[in-house]
């Protein structure tokens, strides 16, 4: 008897240990913790620091803890701020419209028109491979192409279409748009192709059988079902353009400024509090815009589906 009791005593704790399960609540916490830790350390904390510093006082040599609204007041009253926001929004909408049009059509072609899997993969790769080089290089590569004595101007002059080189091609809003579209169209193609691929071809057949024209099928079936992809792509393109520094600087020749380039000038002049204030306003602005897009399409719900 005593030996059985002893054996039970020996086994019991171990089997109890094996049976131990964290509560479902704790499991959820454990599951979100890696991402939460990353987001808190690398996003939330720095943002809080920016927020705090944006109220500081500063002079040439240092920043001083304080609670001043001057940085925001100066930021919101200078005409420069309104101009950079308008110009960034203008770029964002033009680029959004064109990349959406291009992205949707390319994705539609890849998903519904290309029958062979191998060909589709190859075409996808053809879209993606240029993205293996850095964005900076792909931006700079446009300069010799679009320049006053660039390849494109020389070509046009060569075939006698023009006698004077076209000046507006480089260091202009045009050049900025071309580069953005080149850089960001893939960001539209990916998510849209993804949601198009989820559409059951039987639905399209059903629409056809019910007598819907191609246009009706597109408007009533395909577009509503690819809403998620369109929203995701739009958010990606929009935030990229609003947060851009390099493309505007390089392609407009410094002629137009972006929100971030204005901020960079302040950092170069060691003026951190106003730079922090600009950063806060930018984050707030983009968050509101993205929030608006999320209201139109509930991306989370659609992703789960």
């Amino acid at each position: 008897m005593s030996s059985t009791a002893e054996a039970t005593a020996r086994i019991a704790p171990r089997s109890r240990g094996r049976r131990w399960r964290p509560s479902p609540r704790a499991t959820s916490w454990l599951q979100v913790s890696p991402l939460a830790i990353i987001l808190v350390t690398f996003f939330a904390l720095p943002t809080v620091i920016f927020l705090v510093v944006s109220f500081y006082d500063y002079d040439r040599v240092g920043i001083y803890p304080d609670f001043l609204l001057d940085n925001y007041k100066e930021l919101l009253t200078t005409p420069a701020t309104l101009r950079v926001y308008l110009s960034s929004l203008k770029f964002a909408f033009i680029v959004w419209g064109i990349t959406l049009f291009l992205g949707f059509n390319i994705a539609y072609f890849l998903v519904f028109h290309v029958r062979s899997r191998a060909v589709r993969t190859m075409l996808f790769l053809a879209c993606a491979i240029p993205f293996w080089t850095s964005g900076i290089i792909r931006t700079i590569a446009w300069i010799p192409f679009l320049g006053r004595n660039g390849v494109f101007n020389q070509m046009l002059q060569g075939v006698k279409l023009i006698d004077q080189p076209l000046e507006f091609l480089l260091f202009s809003p045009f050049a900025v748009c071309v580069t953005y579209i080149h850089l960001f169209t893939l960001l539209m193609i990916g998510p849209i192709a993804n949601s198009l691929a989820k559409i059951d071809p039987a639905l399209l057949e059903a629409a056809r059988d019910a007598g819907a024209s191609r246009w009706r099928t597109m408007v009533d079936v395909v577009i509503p079902l690819s809403k998620t992809g369109i929203a995701l792509g739009s958010i990606l393109v929009f935030t990229q353009v609003m947060g851009d520094f390099f493309v505007v600087k390089a392609m407009s020749g410094g002629q137009s400024a972006s929100i971030v380039s204005q901020l960079a000038t302040e950092i170069q002049a060691m003026q951190y509090p106003p730079a922090a204030a600009s950063a806060m306003i930018l984050v707030l602005f983009v968050a509101v815009m993205v929030g608006g897009m999320m209201r139109v399409v509930d991306v989370r719900k659609e992703l789960v589906r």
Partner: peptide, 18 residues
């Protein structure tokens, strides 16, 4: 580096964005 460098940076940003 001007004594008014804080003001100059603001004005320079206005110039570049104009």
């Amino acid at each position: 580096v001007m004594d008014e460098d804080r003001y100059l940076t603001r004005k320079w940003n206005e110039f570049i964005t104009s």
